[in-house]
């Protein structure tokens, strides 16, 4: 028996919005420690890794490890039927081929349930090596989304250059060149407005705007985003999900032909 309950359906809606542009379907691996999802996008350029800890749920029970392959378009249709403040409960029997998603209004006067067919997805799991990153940048998630959106107008690629002075995002194309520099913030009133750079070594890497913009669909989940970079390895873009877990996106850099 698997049962996981969250106080607000809005969190699940935001999580789905954060992955459904990259993934058509994905396997939710459930164990007593929580729910994990790891999947590459169709072009195998990026990888999504979602962790939801069992202690972040209002109720969590998982008697046996369970892998639930879900069509994310179908799941989106179901979540559209929930009000943001509804409780949401996911339930499945051991070895079941369906999952039940139930919504309850705050006053419990409206209860709806949706049974969704599960899929057998043959997804490979990748081992992600530990990396000592040369640069780790923490910045407001909205600012990162804005920069990715703005620079995508000028080029398919963005160059991220991180030094101890700050982080620079650049794009160059037919129109010309765009550069956006962010310095580390001095003192800020609010922690969520801070730009913090931890640099061991300067690093310059090139990434596809299209994927960065897809990652920023996670912006509603978190006030801050963390970018971890190291020469010749994938960028890690991480959004914390408060009291529940995190979503990490890995993006292969563009390299010299």
């Amino acid at each position: 028996m698997f049962e996981a309950r969250l106080g607000q359906a809005t969190i699940l809606k935001k999580i789905l919005d954060a992955i459904k542009d990259l993934l058509n379907e994905a396997t939710f691996d459930c164990s007593d420690s929580g729910i994990q999802l790891q999947a590459m996008d169709n072009s195998h350029v990026s990888l999504v890794s979602l962790t939801l800890r069992s202690d972040g749920f209002d109720k969590f029970r998982c008697d046996r490890n369970l892998s639930m392959g879900m069509n994310l378009g179908s799941m989106a249709k179901i979540l559209k039927c929930a009000n943001n403040e509804d409780n949401v409960t996911m339930k499945a029997q051991d070895n079941a081929d369906t999952v039940t998603i139930m919504f309850e209004s705050a006053n419990q006067e409206k209860v709806s349930d949706y049974e969704m067919k599960l899929m057998n997805l043959d997804q490979e799991h990748l081992g992600i090596p530990e990396t000592d990153f040369s640069c780790v940048v923490r910045m407001p998630a909205m600012e990162f989304a804005r920069i990715c959106r703005d620079l995508a107008q000028f080029s398919e690629s963005v160059v991220i250059c991180c030094t101890k002075e700050g982080v620079k995002f650049s794009a160059s194309g037919d129109v010309g060149t765009a550069n956006i520099k962010l310095a580390q913030t001095g003192s800020v009133d609010k922690e969520e407005e801070a730009v913090i750079i931890e640099m061991q070594e300067p690093v310059t890497l090139t990434f596809a705007c299209r994927y960065l913009n897809a990652f920023t669909k996670a912006t509603p989940l978190s006030t801050q985003v963390q970018l971890s970079m190291c020469a010749d390895v994938p960028l890690v873009v991480e959004y914390a999900i408060k009291d529940l877990g995190h979503i990490r996106y890995y993006l292969a850099p563009k390299i010299e032909d």
Partner: peptide, 14 residues
């Protein structure tokens, strides 16, 4: 010219 690599080149199959 820079080209897009695959994420597979960086991670190993489990």
């Amino acid at each position: 010219k820079k080209v897009q690599g695959s994420i597979r080149n960086y991670f190993t199959s489990k």
